[in-house]
Design a binder for these strands. Structure first.
Lengths: 270, 270
DNA sequence: GCCCGCGAGTTTACGTCGTAAACGGCTGGG
DNA sequence: CCCAGCCGTTTACGACGTAAACTCGCGGGC
């Protein structure tokens, strides 16, 4: 696999575009079940509200989402929302759930491991990454909201996906111990990478939000290494990083699967 | 390769307690510079405010932190805080910064890689983990707040630590490319693991917070695998997982270091 | 045709939030 | 003795989430 990009990479660089980025692809993981943008005299229901909320957060940022403003974006007073949603917190829970459920509409992600577990995990990971990149303002919510049940971890928030994951893995030769261990390793890998990636992308893309000053860039005189490596540090290699860590994880899991035990070997590299 | 790690790394037996958990240890990473609980006629300053804020979040949860309540916890009106802190957002930034700065007070974490880079990374990882476990309610903030500069990633929020990291790695034989790649891999590993761990721990430990219903545990009849593995899934193996993934990462980085290039090999398993 | 209940959306209202601005009182140097 | 400056308080405003009361239009019994 092609390794280091040359320093010619000015910003996005990359000969081929990131396959998961929203504009670089057909655009699954982007289809909300709601119909036209937000016009229409359809008489308001839960799905429409959730769709509008996601659109609103994507556009204006999470911190700008207000019951009043969300109502306004639907041509309705704030209190009307309360007929369909118990409160703001549950609305946000619904947003998270809806976003994760976009996985079902993604033709590249399968509920079953028809072509092996590595294919399954690859597709799932890229599907979740596509969602994270399509809704960068929503994704921190996915990571931050408390899970419904203690064992349901972000970012695979729905029990249905946990079920799918565990079934896929056990049906591919993982012991139950190993499947659970794989679930843990996989979800923490996904969460870490994607959260970092959107938090990195979210700042430059989205001008306003938390009212933070963009980057005063204080005196860096005390940090010569940071200064020297500034260009390297600010390169966006998210896609390659993601791919490589995913590959490594799959290798690690293959090792786990063959052992049939919970993972633990001091060395695993060549 | 057994990475030279001081804190009894290899033995991942469940019999001995988690070395990073707050009560299982001497308690570095727990020392705030503030003195007695909150009594005292000391005339209020920024450090005292930040300390009180951290204490407040640890006790009552992030969502309960209010300028008025924080003021009250210091025996002062809310507006008094504004003389020392520009606003709530900057207060939270200060909280994050203060929490990360606890690393400096941790005798087990070194700014320089005197005993090799693996020892350095081990100590740093455990130091950060100790902080995350000591302040589970603060840690999501560490991950979520926008970074000051795009290249400063959570959870190593301060330029000083980035500088330390890069210097340590390059001084141990990493090329600059590799050091930056290691920084990325390491921070995303840390963030993912710790965020998942505290979000998992935070729910059962802390009764109230976001007003979420604890866990109604809806009908699980559609998810037989989840039900069957429920016990396995709800086991807390955070410490072992952390250790194992860290070990794996170190192995991966050793590989990177020897190549002297940015990390990428299609396969790495046996 | 009349009425009436009822579901969908609105109005009003309350308490809390972050914070701007004016205010008060202590304190130490001329 | 006075007064300037610091430090904390008071007051006030607009926005927030949401409870409760209200309005309005429509479809089915009489």
């Amino acid at each position: 696999m092609a390794t280091a990009a040359d320093p010619d990479a000015s910003g996005d660089g990359a000969d081929e575009p990131d396959p998961d980025s929203p504009e670089g692809r057909g655009g699954a993981a982007f289809v909300l079940p709601a119909g036209p943008p937000d016009t229409g005299r359809t008489p308001l229901d839960r799905r429409r509200i959730l769709g509008a909320a996601i659109r609103f957060i994507d556009t204006h940022g999470l911190s700008a989402l207000t019951m009043r403003r969300l109502g306004a974006s639907l041509g309705v007073e704030a209190m009307a929302l309360y007929r369909y949603v118990p409160g703001r917190d549950q609305l946000l829970d619904g947003v998270v759930e809806t976003v994760i459920d976009e996985l079902y509409g993604d033709p590249d992600v399968h509920l079953e491991a028809a072509h092996g577990w590595q294919d399954y995990l690859q597709r799932l990971a890229h599907g979740v990454r596509r969602i994270a990149l399509a809704h960068p303002e929503v994704f921190p919510l996915v990571a931050t909201r408390p899970p419904a049940a203690p064992w349901v971890r972000p970012p695979l928030r729905s029990l249905r996906w946990v079920e799918s994951f565990l079934t896929a893995m056990t049906s591919c030769g993982f012991s139950e111990d190993s499947a659970v261990a794989a679930y843990r390793a996989y979800s923490s890998f996904l969460l870490g990478h994607l959260l970092l990636e959107v938090s990195q992308k979210g700042v430059p893309i989205n001008a306003q939000d938390a009212g933070e000053s963009p980057a005063p860039t204080a005196d860096l005189s005390e940090y010569p290494t940071v200064v020297r490596l500034q260009e390297l540090l600010s390169m966006d290699e998210s896609a390659e990083e993601f791919e490589e860590a995913l590959e490594n994880l799959l290798g690690r899991l293959e090792h786990v699967r063959r052992e049939g035990r919970s993972p633990a070997e001091p060395e695993s590299f060549t």
